[in-house]
């Protein structure tokens, strides 16, 4: 049950990414290219996702517990620290270079040829390497 439902959640999330073309690196880079032929359409996607989540969370978090588990797992950190800012800056650099972030990277693995696979490999390597670095 748990496996089936997380599969479906991943599938729905992926469908959203594919249909809104967030899985197309050229489209992402056009969105980030404010100095060139700027394509702001992904703002609508992000805004819609944010609005849906905001409203959804309001109702969901009023419940004592989620439907299929015993407790909510909400991030507890509240401090804006160096790792957060440096990590996010490095992430932004990578996103701007590759035109892919983790979700879309996985979602194009089956249809994008060899390049997405190289991206995923590099991303996993980066995640692994991060364990050895302290800032």
């Amino acid at each position: 049950m748990r496996i089936l439902s997380t599969f479906l959640v991943g599938l729905i999330f992926g469908l959203g990414l594919v249909i809104s073309q967030m899985t197309n690196p050229a489209k992402i880079l056009a969105f980030l290219d404010i100095g060139g032929n700027w394509d702001p359409s992904l703002l609508i996607v992000m805004g819609a996702a944010l609005a849906t989540t905001m409203i959804g969370y309001r109702f969901i978090l009023r419940r004592p517990k989620p439907v299929l588990e015993t407790a909510f797992h909400i991030p507890t950190k509240t401090v804006i620290d160096r790792p957060l800012l440096i990590g996010s800056a490095i992430f932004g650099l990578g996103w701007g270079m590759a035109g892919l972030c983790p979700g879309p990277g996985i979602a194009v693995a089956a249809v994008g040829g060899i390049t997405p696979l190289i991206f995923i490999l590099a991303m996993v390597l980066g995640m692994w390497g991060q364990r050895f670095v302290k800032v």
């Binding site: 996010s88 992430f91 650099l93 990578g94 972030c101 991206f119 991303m123 980066g126 670095v133």
Partner: peptide
């Protein structure tokens, strides 16, 4: 390079 930075940065930044 972008992939490496995305993976590294996302983990460091949480």
């Amino acid at each position: 390079i972008g992939g490496l930075a995305v993976g590294f940065g996302a983990r460091l930044g949480g």
